[in-house]
Design a protein around this nucleic acid. Structure first.
Lengths: 210, 210, 210, 210
DNA sequence: AATGAATGAGGTTTCATTCAT
DNA sequence: GATGAATGAAACCTCATTCAT
């Protein structure tokens, strides 16, 4: 019986395992943000996390998988957080502004994570070519849902496709964020950008006769 | 004979040199679009262009420089072409629609070039980190100029920063284009997307009381 | 309780230790025969034996030592078994045939062990380069002894060196066995091969005028 | 036209290419014989051949392919050489002795090659598991042919299978050779061993009443 | 005794770039 | 100018072994 138990990670070891995994992930975020995914060696991540190179592979199948995990887990957190902020709001225009503000504040607060997501993730062939971005779709669909809500309330134009708009808004925010991340001294604040983009989209989506 | 002529840069050899350079560039576009920049070897480009590997280096300093040249020259052409389309138009909203439609039709017509620009360019560390995108800024500034024109004509809102808007519009178009390129069967046409994005931005930028 | 007993090496724990060692060895034979020594990981052997990786090292110094132990113990068994079969025989030619038949039937009956011995053992650098094959010499010398017996009885040629003959016979049997093991569908039976080889060696060693 | 010609290796470059390939192969034989295939690094071979590491891969697809090439080319040479020695002989027993003597003298003269073939080749998983030993079969079949010749001449026993005998003889010779290679101070000469093995096989195969 | 998480050394191969011809 | 053979740097991952529990 003791033998069987030992084959299943115990409660304590499961927690400790998750902790170490997160520890490595955080180290990877710092390293990738600093030097870029391609220029970072697995041994750099290991050193930053104070573990041996091989230990990385007890928690991740490959270097690429580390990057994907950063993405997946950051997106999962963002989805949860933004949903919480949107829940109490009933006005779709208000929701649109909140989403944009949330996205940009997230980028600002978690600059390293944002840097990895926006810049490094795109450098990974694996990601761009093979990964099915379920989580990204889910995040994008929040915007789609807002638009559909506005349309069903009769306050947003019916002649736009939510699938197009959600990606357009994301592209707009994303491009600004990338610029802000890449340019050491940006000439405009993220908060201001979020506000203006939300304004333009809100005004542009509002039903003319409403 | 050609060899002798080449000793002195003459009108003919200069032209021939430019031709060969263009020939290599076009080969590179095909190769990069087919297999991706990272997976393409310089020798693949050489083979496609029917020249020796070393010959590439008589025309380009490095593999990265090939990619940058593709970008620079495509942008230069685009700038010239879109300026020609915008010149006869005086209405900034009309210009906005024209710009968006132009961008997307360009992507559609030159799929290989677009693929390289949108996807592969981002995979190049050199570009994202070290390249100063003068030509891109110039292209973007066309949008900025349209917005400033609209503001000076009093038909566009004064409370938006053209620098932010130009990048937002570009990001929106770019994200849609990338999606279209990456997804074998896109669920919406580029023309329709361009139209909707232009509509939303136009409506969103129009002065409320105008 | 078992734990307490184990603190003092007792007759029971010594037996239990030997049992576990044998258990691991048998697991290793299966694993090595299945996937090859080099491709097998120590953790594969551990899993097959239902013990932890580290436990292996309580019984064996290294992965190589497992292989050597398989060899040593298999040879010891073979020596004992063949000696028992040879003991009642007085005719050296009869002994020769018995030895060959024994060797091949052993290969046939213990295919996994044979596979490991014949194929995998040779893949181990350690073995071929550093190991002193005492047990193998002992096994080989059984043949040498048979030849010397025949010579002393005056029925076998004196102009052959038993040291050469013993190795030649072993090589002949071994090569056939390896072929049989490596080739899924062998074109001849091991028993028939043993018989023919023994026949040729017997006839070849018989004193012409005897 | 000059361009087309350049795509085909010229007579001169083809020769030079073959020379360099052979040069690398000879370096590899020395290195592998000295330290063993597994312990030898590709860079060791490169250093011995005075070329860059990458150059190796212009001539061989992989490290394994180097080993296979050594084998294939050595076997091809041996087949040709032994056939030449056997051609003038009509007595199958004489042929048998010549074959054995040839094999052993070959081992003695090309000790490094023999060492690689006998010992190192067997250490290569690729070879033992995936390679179809056509050349080896061809070499072995020379013995088979000799036996069949003896049988058709009515001087060799009909009750033995040439397929078994050819492999048995090879195994006998091979085992002695391996021993001689592995043991710094062998207790018997290769020439003497060849002679005795040939004698035993010849006598053993001779038709009793002939 | 048993566990299994952690360690860290080790090497093949690719391919951008050079340069002698 | 053109060639293409040669160069050589660079890093991911595996897995035998250890040792704290």
């Amino acid at each position: 019986m003791a033998g069987n138990a030992a084959r299943q990670p115990s409660a304590r070891s499961a927690k400790s395992r998750a902790d170490k995994r997160r520890h490595i992930l955080e180290a990877a975020v710092e390293v990738f943000a600093r030097a870029g995914f391609h220029k970072s060696r697995v041994s750099d991540v290991a050193k930053e996390a104070s573990v041996a190179d091989g230990t990385i592979y007890l928690y991740f199948k490959s270097k690429d998988e580390i990057l994907l995990s950063i993405f997946e887990e950051a997106m999962a957190e963002m989805i949860e957080a933004v949903e919480a902020q949107l829940a109490p709001l009933s006005d779709p225009f208000e929701q649109l502004r909140t989403f944009a503000a949330f996205h940009m504040s997230r980028v600002e607060k978690h600059k390293s994570v944002a840097k990895v997501l926006q810049v490094e993730l795109r450098l990974s062939n694996t990601f761009m070519r093979e990964y099915k971005p379920t989580k990204l779709k889910q995040y994008l669909d929040i915007v789609g849902r807002i638009v559909r809500l506005g349309q069903s309330q009769g306050v947003m134009r019916d002649d736009v496709n939510p699938i197009i708009i959600r990606r357009a808004l994301f592209g707009a925010l994303d491009e600004i964020a990338m610029q802000w991340i890449l340019t050491p001294a940006a000439r405009y604040g993220l908060k201001e950008s979020a506000s203006q983009i939300a304004d333009v989209f809100a005004a542009g989506l509002r039903k003319p006769d409403a």
